[in-house]
């Protein structure tokens, strides 16, 4: 991972090799066909690095790859390079973004949680209002899944089990203890008086691996990460900790419908470091807005089970502030922060 992060900075090599390949292959049909919006603004004139704070293959990464593919069509001359920098629940990548030059060539597509909640632990240099939001891109839910052959068929089955067997149920959390995927369960423990055991994993894939192998009993994840496995019956969803139902799995019960006031959404937005010139921000916002209205993009997002939820910079910052406030309360109550 370390190697990858640093090496990906060699975007120049990438450009070279891509030129070579374009020459070699006559079949490439991906030329950017942009329309000049503001000819006065000389941006972008070099590749834009889009940091993804999570490993390749996860929801955020896939969303970023779609932007990487389509955004250049609405941003003339742009070349976007996705850089995965997993680790520390997104704080590794966001610390990098925070320290990067505010020239519009380093952006991040990140979950709100990494920005709004992680700084509460006081280990990051940035805080929830240290960045310049550009636009909200998509939203997702968080669900608890168990193996298909597990004895618990419904939320009630599962709940009876954990109620009667405190400390027995183990569940994988991607990103570690006290991370976003740990919180919904932590709060349920508090509200419902149950006791379960979190097991930290580096990401969703290793957590699912451990679940399938029977090493943990459940995993909290985003439904898009396990759609195929839930459909094939290998995994079964127990509850949905978000405020909205999963569009393609409307039957997963919401915790708030079961009487627990828990609503953890997973929204993902495009951010820049503070201080990027306003014209560049506006140009990017315009491009993102048009990209998200493109039917081809909508189809791509649907194909990978992500739900487009456009929003402007102000609404993103408002959600960040709100999530920061709420998480602070919960983490303090849980005793995870002082």
């Amino acid at each position: 991972m370390k190697q990858m992060g640093s090496l990906l900075k060699k975007k120049n090599l990438l450009v070279l090799i891509s030129i070579l390949l374009l020459l070699l292959s006559a079949c490439s049909n991906n030329e950017a066909k942009g329309n000049a919006e503001e000819p006065a603004l000389d941006y972008p004139k070099k590749p834009i690095q889009l940091i993804v704070p999570f490993a390749a293959g996860g929801s955020t990464d896939i969303g970023a790859r779609i932007l990487e593919k389509y955004l250049p069509q609405y941003l003339e001359g742009a070349k976007i390079v996705v850089v995965n920098k997993p680790g520390g629940s997104g704080t590794v990548a966001l610390s990098d973004l925070y320290a990067s030059k505010a020239d519009g060539y380093t952006l991040a597509l990140t979950t709100h949680r990494a920005v709004a909640m992680q700084p509460l632990y006081g280990k990051t240099k940035y805080s929830h209002d240290s960045f310049q939001p550009i636009a909200k891109v998509f939203g997702n839910q968080q669900i608890l899944v168990v193996r298909g052959d597990a004895p618990w068929k419904t939320f009630e089955d599962w709940f009876d089990y954990v109620k009667n067997n405190p400390g027995q149920f183990t569940f994988g959390v991607a990103g570690g203890i006290g991370s976003g995927s740990h919180l919904p369960m932590a709060e349920l423990e508090r509200l419902a008086g149950i006791k379960v055991k979190p097991v930290p994993f580096e990401g969703t894939s290793p957590a699912i691996t451990a679940l399938l192998g029977g090493h943990v009993d459940g995993v909290i994840l985003q439904p898009s990460d396990a759609k195929a496995m839930i459909e094939s019956g290998e995994l079964r969803a127990i509850f949905n900790a978000a405020s909205t139902p999963v569009p393609y799995f409307p039957d997963i019960p919401l915790l708030k419908d079961k009487g627990y006031d828990i609503a953890y959404d997973s929204n993902t937005s495009l951010l820049a470091p503070k201080g990027v010139p306003q014209e560049i921000i506006e140009k990017l916002q315009e491009a993102v807005k048009k990209t998200l209205e493109d039917p081809a993009v909508i189809a791509e997002f649907e194909k990978v089970n992500l739900q487009i939820q456009p929003g402007d910079d102000k609404s993103v910052q408002k959600e960040l502030d709100e999530e920061n406030r709420r998480s602070k309360e919960i983490l303090t109550e849980l005793g995870l922060i002082k």
């Binding site: 060699k10 990438l14 090799i17 891509s18 490439s28 991906n30 990487e68």
Partner: peptide
């Protein structure tokens, strides 16, 4: 020196956009 398989594949993913998935 320095470049390995992880970075190599990651660097070149975007080039495959215009291609058939199999290719």
């Amino acid at each position: 020196p320095g470049l390995g398989p992880v970075s190599g594949t990651a660097l070149l993913i975007p080039i495959t956009f215009g291609m058939e998935p199999v290719s």
